[in-house]
């Protein structure tokens, strides 16, 4: 019998053998089920979003404004559900389906802020609002800034005098 773990080997070898044992034993997450949930719930949130966009377009907003208004509505709903303690319950199943839409961004801001209430409004809520969502803003803004800069340096020149 080949030993899967040999305690008489040097530590580095033991580590390698042990991590192989762990990898053999540890199950993958239920990928198919997770994907189905993510696709279904994520799709539904976007469909609902489309419904709200269409409504705002119906009352005369441009697509861009309607999409912005929709973001505000979705962020409000996500903040509300997070406050009620329901968002994480749903996301346990929906996974990326509730993480990736703008609602997930809102949840990432509200969740740490709620808990930090006990540490006060300034050092608690104020400081922790961006604890989880901060990186999204940082990388989004930096990438956008770089895009704008590249456009400014190498993009088509605006006509003179405009």
């Amino acid at each position: 019998m080949v030993r899967q773990f040999d305690p008489s080997q040097p530590l580095e070898m033991q580590k390698r053998q042990y991590q192989q044992m762990v990898n053999r034993l540890v199950p993958r997450p239920p990928v198919w089920r997770n994907c189905l949930w993510a696709f279904g719930v994520g799709g539904l949130i976007c469909t609902a979003g489309q419904g709200i966009v269409s409504f705002f377009q119906g009352v005369g907003l441009s697509f861009l404004d309607a999409a912005t208004a929709t973001s505000i509505v979705l962020v409000f709903l996500a903040a509300f559900l997070t406050g009620l303690g329901l968002y994480d319950e749903l996301a346990r199943y929906a996974g990326a389906g509730m993480l990736v839409p703008i609602t997930g961004f809102a949840n990432a801001m509200v969740a740490p802020a709620l808990e930090a209430r006990t540490e006060g409004l300034v050092l608690g809520v104020g400081a922790r609002l961006f604890a989880v969502a901060g990186p999204i803003l940082v990388f989004g803004i930096v990438t956008a800034w770089l895009s704008g800069l590249i456009y400014y340096l190498f993009g088509p020149r605006p006509p003179l005098g405009s």
Binding site: P112, L114, V132
Partner: peptide, 17 residues
């Protein structure tokens, strides 16, 4: 949870382990 992982109300999925 709040000290070691995520805020409790954050919608994250846990792996089987």
């Amino acid at each position: 949870e709040r000290q070691f992982r995520f805020p409790t109300e954050h919608g994250s999925q846990r792996p089987p382990t």
